[in-house]
Design a protein around this nucleic acid. Structure first.
Lengths: 187, 187
DNA sequence: AAATCTATTTGACAATTGTCAAAATCACTC
DNA sequence: GAGTGATTTTGACAATTGTCAAATAGATTT
């Protein structure tokens, strides 16, 4: 159940971390469209996708907006709630039938209290997702709707077959109609 | 030299962290427009503003783009380089005459190796700057140029007197001309 | 105070994208 | 396989914002 981003790290040190987290993780299967976390409640889990696709979304002026998408080997959660320990504005749902590892936050904290040397991996994890957001900002600032779409296709070609166009559109910050036209203009 | 965001944390635990970081921090004064870090080199410092204003910027298609702005009680660095330990694409400069605390990354790592219990504060720090980026993305996705400007004025009213309009514009993802017109349309 | 350099504003126009409404396509159920 | 509901596409139009060029204002130097 190792996260993709950890695969480059020194195996020896990592093994203990993984063992400790394996010990508190549980595996679940969910059918398509299952809500893993509901907005307005506190989120106490990190979800790691073994198989399938999941997204976080929220409602902005009544519209469903996708904030994050995760596929195999990636993690997803209601990050605001997990960080600030309060009610979340995000929902998390699986978009396909999925197999998910759950790590409960309180147990994770306990592991980190007992073995603070693991904290540096959490730090590494946060650094990675921070850089992901920085990339996304640059994407929004400097690339046109069309370019953003092309970059997503380049990065995750399979995603477009696996998730609704409307979700892709809101994730990219484009109206669904514009995204549809962009697709039509290709080939 | 405490960071604004740490002020809400339990004082007792925090005191040791601060003492340990004070021990490796050095204070410097820089005149306006001094470059604290140059792109293409590895950044080995975190800068904490005691007085003044600083920004990170980079060149995108030859244009100066402001990525981050920090004022008193906030921190700034070439975050890509600090995280990934490689050459940075960012420059860091002070925009006003400033007093800055420097913390060298290698020494910070050493402190964290010796006292891994401090890692959780680093984690807290990363979580905070992560949420800042998430806010910025939402800002870009859902608010017009005018609204983004108004929100910045609301949040940091003094900034507009302290830093060039062109820097504010690129930070907000707006052309300088549009920002100028937005300002003209008010009052 | 004139001269020079920098920063900001203004004008004219074009391009990108959003919105609303309707049609077409697709997917699933009975 | 007809029918129903969800998803995607298309059309027409308006609004926001960017670009390029020039003018103005402000700041700094001699």
């Amino acid at each position: 159940m190792i996260l993709e981003i950890f695969k480059s790290l020194p195996a020896a040190e990592l093994a203990e971390l993984l063992a400790d987290f394996q010990a508190i993780a549980t595996r679940h299967s969910y059918p398509k469209n299952t809500l893993l976390h509901q907005e307005g409640t506190r989120c106490d889990h990190v979800f790691i996708l073994e198989k399938g696709v999941a997204r976080t979304f929220y409602y902005k002026d009544g519209k469903d907006v996708t904030a994050h998408i995760a596929t195999e080997g990636e993690s997803i959660t209601a990050i605001d709630s997990l960080i600030q320990r309060k009610k979340s504005r995000y929902n998390v749902e699986v978009v396909e039938d999925s197999v998910v590892m759950l790590i409960a936050y309180p147990e994770m904290q306990q592991v980190l209290e007992q073995k603070p040397q693991h904290e540096k991996y959490i730090r590494f994890f946060l650094e990675q997702i921070y850089m992901d957001l920085a990339d996304r900002i640059e994407n929004l600032l400097f690339y046109t709707a069309k370019e953003r779409y092309e970059r997503l296709v380049e990065d995750k070609p399979d995603l477009l077959q696996r998730i609704n166009l409307s979700h892709i559109a809101s994730y990219l910050g484009i109206s669904q109609e514009t995204l549809s036209r962009i697709r039509a203009s290709k080939e």
